[in-house]
């Protein structure tokens, strides 16, 4: 079992026979199964109609541009599964990215600047956690405020203008912004994060605590699990992931726009929900969240292959979210009905 990415925790009860159940049943029963199947199907459909879509470079491009929201969505899935939400992830992503750009532009070592960007993400997450814990307001309210505060900082420190003319020949830009064996560096990071976080969620006491709080906060607290502590840790983790995403984005874009990542928080929530993490808490899937981000991008890029005006892409994205959630809900109801029999 070790080493495999276990996508469990929320599994429907018929799967509950655990390792005795067939591998197929486990795959089909996994909460992220729907989103993976939908993504693959959609890619194939577009590919059949427009074969150039299936070029490796095009597909890697889609993965590359999904990596940032994918990382944010992974953090979001953790938060949603404990009935919390972080609306500031897009702003944290932007602020971290812009901070790295400014440090590099000021002549700091690029790798140190990158490290500082990740640490900054963790600090921003800690700020969110501190507000929630000490002012005692719901996370959604606290992060609604810091959504603007962090974004506002990014705009204010740059005077609203881009940070450009960075040393793009530097090893940081060529490695982190480049590819390894043809695969974009950021995609590799996303994959590693998905594996690591999935193991964390489904195979460590910490992960079980997250799910326990989401399942029944009262019972969790009553068992000696500190909701404040776990929430703080997950908010910091969410910030760190935004920091990592910011650094990856910086390396790839090679310039810093203070408005970058606006709206990413909603995309991340959408990706997590499409991926199979319900808002009611108690279960979650990191893999689903990451694939959800990919699905959103597949839709957006697919449209351009059919000459759909770019102005319709927002509409299409919304439609996909509705469709994905509706199918999932129907499937869940059918499974529940089958169980009754």
């Amino acid at each position: 079992m070790a080493g495999t990415v276990q996508d469990a925790g929320a599994g429907p009860p018929h799967r509950a026979n655990g390792h005795k159940a067939g591998i197929l049943a486990r795959i089909f029963g996994a909460p992220s199964f729907s989103v993976i199947a939908a993504t693959v199907a959609l890619v194939l459909v577009i590919g059949v109609l427009r074969p150039t879509y299936l070029q490796a470079s095009q597909l890697l491009d889609i993965l590359q541009s999904s990596a940032y929201v994918g990382l944010l969505a992974a953090g979001m899935a953790l938060l949603l599964s404990m009935r919390e939400i972080d609306l500031s992830v897009g702003s944290m992503f932007g602020l971290c990215l812009i901070s790295v750009a400014m440090l590099i532009s000021a002549g700091f070592n690029t790798w140190l600047a990158a490290g500082a960007g990740i640490v900054l993400g963790g600090l921003l997450g800690a700020v969110n956690a501190a507000i929630v814990t000490y002012i005692r307001i719901p996370t959604i309210v606290a992060t609604l405020a810091t959504l603007s505060v962090f974004r506002g900082l990014a705009i204010a420190v740059t005077d609203g203008s881009q940070v450009a003319s960075l040393p793009v020949a530097d090893s940081f830009f060529t490695i982190v912004g480049g590819t390894v064996l043809g695969v974009p560096f950021s995609v590799i990071v996303l994959a590693l994060m998905v594996i690591g976080l999935s193991l964390m969620l489904h195979h460590t006491p910490f992960g079980y605590r997250i799910l326990a709080i989401g399942s029944n906060p009262g019972a969790a607290q009553f068992s000696g699990i500190s909701a404040n502590r776990v929430r703080t840790q997950v908010l910091i983790l969410s910030g760190l992931l935004a920091g990592v995403a910011g650094v990856l984005g910086m390396a790839f874009f090679t310039s810093g726009d203070p408005n970058i990542g606006g709206g990413f928080e909603l995309a991340a929530i959408a990706a997590a929900v499409i991926g199979g993490t319900p808002l009611r808490g108690g279960s979650g899937t990191i893999l689903g969240a990451a694939v959800g981000a990919v699905l959103l991008n597949v839709v957006a890029t697919g449209l351009t292959y059919f000459n759909v005006p770019a102005n319709w892409s927002e509409f299409a994205t919304g439609a996909v979210i509705l469709l994905a959630v509706a199918i999932d809900s129907l499937a869940r109801r059918r499974r529940a009905a089958n169980q009754e029999k």
């Binding site: 079992m1 070790a2 193991l199 195979h203 460590t204 006491p205 079980y208 605590r209 326990a212 969790a220 068992s223 000696g224 699990i225």
Partner: peptide
């Protein structure tokens, strides 16, 4: 889970 007495990696 709460006390974490059975190690860090759970199967």
């Amino acid at each position: 889970i709460a006390l974490g007495r059975d190690g860090r990696f759970l199967s």
